[in-house]
Write a protein that binds this DNA or RNA. Structure first.
Lengths: 128, 128
DNA sequence: CCGTATCCCACTCGATACTG
DNA sequence: CAGTATCGAGTGGGATACGG
């Protein structure tokens, strides 16, 4: 059924496959928003922090490190004073971010449906 | 600069926008794998559990409830003995899952690059 | 300005046991 | 088979303070 395409070296459905952690970094709570924000333009640390509403310094730092390690984000530190560091997407990061953004826009554009579904669900249960 | 397209009612970058929680349900650790697994065929609870390697009963149950509430997954319980419940995607769930699967395949197909990037990163740091 | 280090609480998650 | 209930360990993540 699916085995004709299963000469894949990596299978994210398998527990210890390294691709799963990469997917989690990219789709995680802050990862997806960070990548999405960087799609339009490269940004500095605090610009990014303002754009991704609600992220703490710690989590943004952590998120950026994970994405940089996975080769999705490039850190460009310029040795000037005051220090200036720009974060931008790598080519691979751009591909990933593009798909993420497509998903984000799809969800944003269908929130009416989602909200309606939630109301229906809650009414069917709240009755009990 | 982006405001010409910003007549959007929902903005996931904003902290309390409900679209953010929906995105998190869909892209979360188990949400993305669950939706991906259901894309090919509808599955029963324990089939799903076997397919999504590593998920516990509790988390699968929780994940399915969240996705059902958001209108991405449909729960079809048949009152037979032994009980049989099938989970399938709604049309919206199918669109979301399709994009997720595209992302999954992209990541799986580029894991060589990711792994190489990780090695580079670790060597540059491990040296210290 | 650009982060890292530390503390600590809340909540997530997994294991186990139990019900219909 | 298809879940729910409970509990305890681990960790995600915010606040704060500090270093380059």
């Amino acid at each position: 059924m699916a085995s004709d395409t299963d000469d894949l070296a990596f299978d994210v459905f398998s527990r210890q496959c390294p691709s799963r952690s990469t997917l989690e970094h990219a789709t995680g709570r802050w990862g997806s928003l960070t990548l999405g924000a960087l799609y339009e333009e490269s940004l500095r640390f605090n610009e990014l922090r303002r754009r991704v509403d609600g992220v703490s310094e710690k989590m943004l730092s952590q998120t950026l490190h994970a994405l940089e390690r996975d080769g999705l984000v490039l850190r460009d530190a310029q040795p000037v004073n005051p220090p200036r560091v720009d974060y931008e997407l790598t080519p691979l990061g751009r591909e990933v971010a593009g798909r993420l953004l497509g998903l984000i826009h799809l969800v944003e554009g269908r929130m009416d449906d989602v909200l309606a579904a939630r109301t229906r669900y809650d009414e069917a249960r709240g009755g009990r």
